[in-house]
Design a protein around this nucleic acid. Sequence first.
DNA 1: AAGGACGACAACCGCTTCAAG
DNA 2: CCTTGAAGCGGTTGTCGTCCT
Length: 330
Amino acid sequence: MGRAPCCDKENVKRGPWSPEEDAKLREYIEKNGTGGNWIALPQKAGLKRCGKSCRLRWLNYLRPNIKHGEFTEEEDRIICTLFASIGSRWSIIAAQLPGRTDNDIKNYWNTKLKKKLMFRAPQSQRKPSPFPSSLQTPPLPSHSLSSLFKDLASSYCYYSPSKSFTRFETISPVQSNILSNNTGLTSSSSLLLSQESLVSPVQCYRQMKDNFLSFGSEASCSSNSDGSCSQISYGREIKQEDMGLQSYISNGYEENQKFMISYGNNGVETLNQWEGEKANGYFEETPLDDELEAVKQLISSSSGIANNACNNFLTEENKTEAQKVMYSYY
DNA sequence: AAGGACGACAACCGCTTCAAG
DNA sequence: CCTTGAAGCGGTTGTCGTCCT
């Protein structure tokens, strides 16, 4: 037996919303809220629309503080980075872009950003990284976890040059052991993460003081859309939206274990160098041009990185390559 | 000027998730 | 546990405007 339809399709209006309908919906919600029941809302609001349609209209268009129009370069970067990390999970990506809706971002990706990436100049035509080798991604074993962290590190480090970092948490002995045993990283390695670039896509970070985050340390938490941290959870209790990292945490670690902290020789040094260079907007990976070709192929194929990321989060070799290319996009 | 191609984006569809009973 | 139904989500389609021939 199939599910009953959410509304009587014969008697609901479809297609574009008129200004009158918008006004009715806005007025009703501003006065009464959604009441937690979108199905009943259209009738109460005097609209001949499906509840789902009302919800979409409100969330994507009428809701206060919705941002329309051009995406900024910073937003482009966020979208690219997160897409490379988590795939087409637009709602999560949207949560990192205040005022943008998942629909907006999805449309923007499909119509513009994807093409922009596809037609990106090959590396040979881009400016070289000015960073000392110590600041570039250190060599790591070709272990999948290492690749995961390496990629996440390069993306997050790269990608928030405007953020002011003021504090650094060094790795604990416990963390050191875990890193050594599981990722091949040494205790002196550290990972810098900025608040704006890392948050709900993985939702297993711990917010430290002063805009600093460590990744999935003893307490993980889920984030709100404003990036704040409200719900503390541990290891296996992380909810489904944590997806890839959740399964990674569950399978690869004991509960409450700490992991993932920083990169480079030591945190302070890395931080200082970072502070000194961040304004330049560098910090790019240096992929080969054939890697760019790889990501182009992934994008153009129907089973591209989005599907890979969703179906087999952060384990596909080709996605790792795709990430590198995307990170160096700017 | 006509009309076809294309791009942008709003809206819909149908599947999944989740919580309540 | 199981069932049910609302909400959430991502993929797809529809529509409209603009550009090009």
